[in-house]
Design a protein around this nucleic acid. Sequence first.
DNA 1: AAAAAAATTGCAAAATCCTGCAAAAAAATG
DNA 2: CATTTTTTTGCAGGATTTTGCAATTTTTTT
Lengths: 249, 249
Amino acid sequence: MLKEERHRLILREVNIHNKVLIADLTDKFDVSEDTVRRDLHELANSGKIQKVRGGALSKSYSGYSYHEQDIYAYREKNLIARKAVSLLKDGMLVLISGGSTNLEIARLVPPELKVTFLTVSLSTAMQLLEHPVSETIFIGGQLSKSAKISVGGEVIGKLSEVRPDICFLGTNGIDASAGITESDWEVVIVKKAMIQASSKVVLCAIAEKLNTVQRIKVCDMSQIDLLVTELDPQSELLTSYRNTGVQLA
Amino acid sequence: MLKEERHRLILREVNIHNKVLIADLTDKFDVSEDTVRRDLHELANSGKIQKVRGGALSKSYSGYSYHEQDIYAYREKNLIARKAVSLLKDGMLVLISGGSTNLEIARLVPPELKVTFLTVSLSTAMQLLEHPVSETIFIGGQLSKSAKISVGGEVIGKLSEVRPDICFLGTNGIDASAGITESDWEVVIVKKAMIQASSKVVLCAIAEKLNTVQRIKVCDMSQIDLLVTELDPQSELLTSYRNTGVQLA
DNA sequence: AAAAAAATTGCAAAATCCTGCAAAAAAATG
DNA sequence: CATTTTTTTGCAGGATTTTGCAATTTTTTT
């Protein structure tokens, strides 16, 4: 087994399960503990993982000292994110918004994939920077204190100049008849522009948010190409959405 | 189960539910009470949670928590930042770059002060958003993986359109004769543009960085209006800088 | 005041890590 | 192709960290 190959597999493992144990790896690769230890050290020194006693953990990105709020319903969001990243292909231009689901997507982008990300979210951007090869472009503008994303005319202008292949959107309210809704006016404007700009719009939401409605409308379900939830696409909880014609995953 | 892994999960648990019980954790992790107790102690000693009898409580009130102990030379940087924020006046347009000193400045902006910040740094922006009344505008562009700031032509263009009253600059290399130097080409370009744009340039650096030179030059000392260090402005360590005519604080 | 629960302390076993070294494998060189 | 150089790997030892246990003390509850 080649060193590079081990490194690749280790990275994949860490990205999916958030941790690896030295014991597991020695077993899996059939090499000595020392070799695995050295592998982990190298990966850690190049900043790809965090070495800890007994194994390694995924790198909790902490540029300086900034502690991302811990994620509610992590398991579900992780599952959604895994479905979402499988849509990515080399060379794509990807527009991605904020929120914890998108943060998880950003974290799970396969290390070898080379795409260009466009984002308006500070946290998402911070996470995307951890990716070894992909490029990240932040769309600047006035920052919204509540959503921690760029908002305003500047952003809308920039969005009208690009044509992303795919757009990952999070949301608070999703309902088969009311469509996608949000509570923050400025955020709605930006999301509308994001949808407008993109060839394909992927909406990510945990089942808990299904059939909820917020105050301001972003768009109809018809504008969404693909809806990703943690549920099985066949689930009957999704029936009303299936009837709108949206694709499910 | 790895120790670090437990620590992370404990933090997540504490931050979501505001408390944890030792009994719950021993059960969840399948380790002895003593081990959990020790885990909680360590987290408490590093200031991340508050240890109480039978468990632990959350310590951080908002989503953004800040751990001074993992900033290098925190005391010095805090002192510098306190001097720096005293330069701020209501209504100013303030340009601020990245780095831990600027992060500390952002943290110490008096809550009632109403200024508009312009920044290219993700971490600084994130911190500035915590401020109750000030506005923050992020200058977008391609993000540099190493410096975590926007770089490239887009940024230079935007910087040429503004005229900030004051600019807070951090740096790695500062020397009375060699001037301000950095090691990253892209960052140098941005800093040059920041200096060009601003009416007043304030350079913040800890004494440790005095008389050090990096590979690429940003500007001469003559372009700096004010140099802020943690030292007394009269200190003889600053003599050579005083001779360049720069103001000291 | 007694009983129960939690914390502290010291200790020893187990697991993990580090260092240096030499054999094996791979790559480069003539 | 043979030889040299470099890289990778496994191993032995000693050091360090982690962990659970038991005995004792402190705090809380009844």
